[in-house]
Amino acid sequence: MSTMSGLKAKLGLDVFKPDSEPHIRIKPGMEKDPRLKRAVLVCPAGLYKENADGAVEMTTDGCLECGTCRIACGTEVLEWNYPSGGTGVQFRFG
């Protein structure tokens, strides 16, 4: 099993409660900003990918809310908030 497909299975172990909207967004027009490419490496959940056009895409499904992308990429390229109260990841062990 490759790491990235194994990662999906790993994230499947966690309890997530859906929020009404994504809590992290790439700021419009920043998709190709080089700072965003850092997130592809640092995100422990592997939620950032660079597509064939060199633009970075992301999903918040499976987000562990660690904040690493916010620190690595900065707030000029990412709009970052925690999910609404009572949604997002709910650790059972921690």
């Binding site: 790491t3 990235m4 490496l41 995100c43 422990p44 592997g46 690493t68 690595a72």
Partner: peptide, 15 residues
Amino acid sequence: IKDLMEGSPAVQAPV
């Protein structure tokens, strides 16, 4: 985080 994002070698955290 700095070492991870700067690559050399580039490796994704989960790996």
